[in-house]
Structure formats: C-alpha cells, structure tokens
C-alpha cells in the first residue's frame, strides 16, 4: 500500500517529515489510546460515564481537553 497523499496538496510536506510520522505512528497512536482509556477509567470511577466515540476512534471530548489543559 502506498502512503496516501492528498491530490490537492499545494505545499511540499517534505518526504522526511511524512516518513518520520509513519515511523512513529504506532507510538503516537498507542500513547494516545492509553491516555484516552486512562481518562475513561478515571471517569468511570467518578461516575461521569463513558467517552464519546467518533467513527470508532477514541477522541478527547472538549470537556476532557479542558480538563487536560487545566493540569
């Protein structure tokens, strides 16, 4: 499979910059998933209920983002 690039690209994203992201993708995705699920667990114990899921992908809701920002 090729790395997908968008046909409308008008800036050169830089090969090195694109490849680096792919190299570290697993670490980034993993760290993010852990963060989101850790928050879920904390919320569960606080009884605030579960997080939103968008397209099956865990995302931080605005609320959580703000909570994050405060810390």
């Amino acid at each position: 499979m090729h790395i997908k690039l968008i046909p409308l690209l008008y800036l050169d994203p830089g090969s090195g910059s694109m490849i680096l992201q792919i190299v570290i993708a697993a670490a980034l995705g993993g760290a993010y998933a852990v963060k989101v699920y850790w928050k879920k667990i904390k919320r569960l114990f606080r009884g605030k209920g579960a997080d939103e899921e968008v397209d099956g992908t865990a995302v931080l809701t605005e609320d959580q983002q703000q909570e994050n920002d405060v810390r």
């Binding site: 992201q21 993708a25 697993a26 995705g29 397209d55 992908t57």
Partner: peptide
Amino acid sequence: KVFSKNALFGLLD
C-alpha cells in the same frame, strides 16, 4: 503501514 486517525490525534497531542 498507514497513519491512523488515532496516530494523528496522538501527533497533535
């Protein structure tokens, strides 16, 4: 490999 949406959220984070 491709760059998943979760990885992109992780990059931004």
